[in-house]
């Protein structure tokens, strides 16, 4: 079976990349194919990369408070490209109320500070390996 492909992305102007990099490495160690966009990506660049790289899921990391703009924008662009099958999940500094709203909008899961990588791995395995 082909390894699930995950794009880890840093949208917007936020430079806090510790979480994104730790998660990217943890997923790679757990057997996922991981692509990391690097910093300061526009939603357009991320959606484009997700389609180009034919990924199964996109993980967005946002610590700058712009999550209510950037998550919906990436999802909208994926839909426009006919790639709504690509799952979107994420993490960062995201208040509970906002996380609930994002999940209503179709974000699969928000993993906040303190989440073990093992939890993200088992979530993704449940979706893609089961």
């Amino acid at each position: 079976m082909k390894k699930p492909r995950i794009l880890i992305a840093k949208p917007g102007l936020d430079g806090h990349d510790r979480g994104a990099k730790v998660v990217a490495r943890g997923l790679a160690d757990a057997g996922f194919e991981v692509i990391y966009t690097g910093l300061h990506q526009t939603p357009e660049q991320i959606a484009e990369a997700a389609v180009q790289e034919d990924v199964d899921a996109v993980g967005l990391s946002i610590l700058s408070g712009a999550h209510m703009t950037l998550f919906p924008r990436v999802m909208e662009l994926l839909r426009e490209k006919g790639a709504e099958n690509i799952m979107v999940f994420g993490g960062g500094i995201i208040p509970t109320d906002d996380a609930v709203e994002l999940k209503h909008l179709g974000v699969a899961e928000i993993f906040g500070p303190g989440t073990p990588i093992a939890e993200i791995v088992s979530f993704l395995e449940g979706r893609f390996k089961g």
């Binding site: 936020d14 300061h40 526009t42 703009t69």
Partner: peptide, 11 residues
């Protein structure tokens, strides 16, 4: 700036 969208006054 287009890249500022959603970020103004946030952090």
């Amino acid at each position: 700036d287009p890249l500022a969208e959603g970020e103004v006054g946030r952090c």
